[in-house]
Simulated assay, not measured.
Amino acid sequence: MDTQLDQADYRLLELLQADARTSIAKLAETVGLSEPACYRRIQRLKRLKIIEREVAVVSPRTMGWPLTMIVLVTLERERTAILDRFIRKLQSVPEIVDVWYVTGDYDFALRVVARDMESFETLTREVLYADNVVKNFKTLVTMRSVKSQAPLVAASRDLE
């Protein structure tokens, strides 16, 4: 499949990241395409997995999760089977909303939400302290989000 993107594709992606519910008519008008051409481009972007999914972004606070922490985790060992098991464990915990396998001093960076510090302590005991592969972890409590899920733009500004 052709994954080459042009300026119209990039503009559509920027608009859809701002509001995925924008009508095809409005998108087509803004980008300067016909409605059928705009629709075909969006379907192509979905088929190619350039648009991975469409979601509603919900405030964790409204769902009862007012605290957000970034947790940096170091493992004792990094064998494939250990990594795979640990990743599955992290994926199964609803309070762990993002997981990144990273390079550097830590092996994983987690974004964790919690009702309160007591529930976060319970999570750390059950998920991190109880796992003998976890060497250590560091918790950063967020005070407020100043930028979140910002739209991606083309890496090259030469497209304009």
Rank of each mutant, 00 (worst) to 15 (best):
R21S: 11
I24D: 14
K26H: 15
K26R: 15
L27H: 00
A28S: 06
A28V: 05
A28R: 03
E29R: 10
T30F: 00
T30A: 13
T30Y: 00
T30H: 03
V31M: 04
V31R: 07
G32D: 07
P36Y: 10
A37E: 13
C38M: 08
C38A: 14
R40P: 00
R40G: 13
R40D: 09
R41N: 08
I42P: 03
I42T: 10
Q43K: 13
R44G: 03
K46N: 12
L48E: 13
K49C: 02
K49W: 05
K49A: 03
K49S: 10
K49G: 03
E54D: 11
V57D: 07
V58N: 02
P60Q: 06
R61A: 14
R61H: 08
M63Q: 15
W65Y: 15
W65G: 04
P66I: 03
P66D: 04
P66Q: 01
T68W: 01
V73H: 05
V73C: 02
T74L: 03
T80Q: 09
A81E: 15
A81P: 11
A81W: 08
I82H: 11
D84W: 00
D84C: 01
R88D: 15
R88K: 15
K89Y: 08
L90F: 14
L90M: 14
S92H: 13
S92E: 14
V93C: 05
V93W: 03
E95C: 08
V97N: 01
D98H: 11
W100P: 00
Y101M: 12
Y101D: 03
V102R: 03
T103K: 02
D105M: 05
F108C: 00
A109E: 08
A109T: 02
A109H: 07
A109C: 01
L110K: 04
L110H: 05
V112N: 08
V112E: 01
V112F: 04
V113L: 09
V113P: 04
V113N: 11
A114F: 07
A114P: 10
D116H: 05
D116S: 06
M117V: 13
F120Q: 07
T122F: 12
T124V: 11
R125P: 03
L128M: 05
N132R: 10
V133A: 15
V133C: 11
V134E: 06
V134T: 09
V134S: 06
K135P: 06
K135H: 12
N136A: 08
F137T: 08
T139Q: 06
L140S: 09
L140W: 04
M143S: 10
R144T: 11
K147W: 04
K147F: 08
S148Q: 10
S148I: 09
Q149N: 15
Q149H: 13
Q149V: 02
A150E: 10
A150Y: 05
A150R: 07
V153W: 01
A155G: 09
S156A: 06
R157A: 08
D158R: 07
